[in-house]
Amino acid sequence: MRGVRGWFLALALPLSFGALAQPVPNTPPPDFPPQVFEIARELRCPVCQGESAAESNAGIALEMRRIIAEQLEQGKSPAEIKQFFVERYGDWILFEPPARGLTLWVWLSPLLGLLLLGYGLWRHQARAKSLAQAQAAGVSEEEIARLEAELDRR
């Protein structure tokens, strides 16, 4: 690897250019078991535009993953770990909104949508049916039977 060494120093240059770049510390991050990512996926990264703490490479997200890993090692449950972050950032940090208060309505939305649309559909059908019956009253039974038979044949 000796020949490569110079390369990496050259590589470190574009890293620090612009000063906007957050320097990556040259120490290896800890190893993360799968559970860390499962929990981090449910938490929002505070500095990113809507990315989760599992995906983002921002410093805060990395630190969040570390904290999750440490707390898992201490034997905390996923719910306790999530609560840890809620205490510091509020409900906003949870990608899954709590089922209470204003966000309860999001959880009710499937039911609400189904009821609203279902009611509309039912009312539409009831109207169309009553209209059909009103029209059918003027047609003889024989005619209906003939038409139905014809429709079936098609």
């Binding site: 996926r41 449910e42 940090i93 990608f95 909104p97 204003l102 309505w105 999001v106 939305s109």
Partner: peptide, 24 residues
């Protein structure tokens, strides 16, 4: 639609920020 717009609606109604994301 509701899930996408709700964070905005909650912020308007209560000033609080919430997220509605993948787990939901």
């Amino acid at each position: 639609v509701v899930g996408t717009l709700w964070p905005l609606a909650v912020e308007l109604l209560s000033g609080a920020k919430v997220s509605v994301g993948a787990p939901f």
